[in-house]
């Protein structure tokens, strides 16, 4: 017997979680779009941000309202620094060099973070009441609602920036053709740095939302693995794709957990999005909203 209420609850939860995936995927898409680099360390960025927030809260005893901005600024500085020191010298090298650099960075971050922040899982309590938020027939966990709203707000702000502001247009011009952008007086390297800085902001917000949900330890970096199905489904270079891809992955994951896991004894939740990803690669490798090269007829 199909249970509508149960399904609806799964989908709602999927939407909330999905928006939080979208947020992290956005950092990945940004960097890919503007600089052609594939950042395999996005999940580790999120973990690092989580550690900065709990480190401020627990180790330094700072208040919440101070810890979050510090994490945002810290991650922006980290993004800028990374671009300047590691990635800029790799411009013009084969793409595999950048990929390997980010994979190496990911491993270093996962290995080094516990040395500074400790190995046990740290709670990241949001300063909000614990009771579930009741909305008509739904009762929603407050952490996820806050995470989803945060994501939604930032996704909207970012879409505006990208589509309407002059800097956003310049960034898309760089993404379209670096050489021509350069000839138009656009300082391409500066936009590379901006893209990495924004990936830092996104990671800080992701660290807050996901850290509050899962607690902060090295495993927080695993949310980065969900970025790949999200961006392949939505399209590697599409902001809208990151949003839609995140929603799909969130919903599919929850439906798999609700309907498939009880049948087979669990575990489908974690790989169901990857099945979709592989199917998408077979039928539409550039994703739902990804760019194809324009062929005029």
């Amino acid at each position: 017997m199909f249970d509508w209420g149960f399904t609806l609850a799964l989908v709602t939860n999927g939407v909330l979680i999905g928006l939080m995936y979208s947020l992290i995927a956005l950092g990945f898409v940004l960097v890919y779009k503007a600089t052609d680099a594939i950042n395999f360390a996005q999940g580790e960025f999120v973990m690092l941000a989580g550690f900065i927030i709990t480190g401020m809260l627990l180790l330094a005893g700072a208040p919440f309202w101070l810890s979050v901005p510090v994490a945002v600024l810290g991650m922006v500085a980290f993004g800028f620094g990374l671009e300047r020191v590691v990635l800029r010298p790799l411009i013009g090298r084969p793409i595999i060099a950048v990929i390997m650099a980010t994979i190496g960075l990911a491993t270093v971050l996962r290995g080094a973070a516990p040395l500074f922040f400790g190995a046990e899982t740290q709670a990241l309590p949001l300063p909000i009441p614990d009771e579930p938020i009741v909305l008509g027939p739904f009762s929603l966990p407050p952490g996820q609602v806050v995470g989803a709203l945060l994501s939604l707000g930032f996704l909207a702000a970012f879409s505006w920036f990208f589509l309407k502001s002059r800097m956003g247009v310049a960034m898309r011009a760089v993404a379209d053709n670096q050489q021509v952008a350069m000839a138009m007086g656009i300082n391409v390297e500066r936009y590379f740095a901006i893209a990495w800085g924004m990936a830092g902001i996104v990671a800080a917000l992701g660290g807050l939302a996901w850290g509050a949900l899962l607690g902060v330890d090295v495993h927080l970096a695993l949310v980065g693995l969900k970025v790949f199905p999200v961006v392949i489904l939505g399209g590697l270079d599409s902001v809208l794709g990151a949003i839609v891809g995140g929603l799909i992955v969130g919903i599919v994951e929850n439906l798999a957990a609700g309907y498939l896991d009880p049948l087979v004894g669990g575990g489908t939740k974690d790989f169901a999005p990857y099945v979709l990803m592989i199917l998408m690669l077979m039928i539409r490798p550039y994703g739902i909203f990804g760019k194809r090269r324009i062929e005029r007829v």
Binding site: A170, R172, A173, Q179, A183, M184, G185, I186
Partner: peptide, 25 residues
């Protein structure tokens, strides 16, 4: 300013966005 051979417009941008990008400086 140099206008490249092979009329390389920013093909995924609209006409007006191309102009905005051209006026970046």
């Amino acid at each position: 300013v140099q206008v490249f051979e092979g009329r390389r417009v920013f093909e995924h941008l609209t006409v007006e966005e191309n102009l905005v990008a051209g006026g970046h400086s």
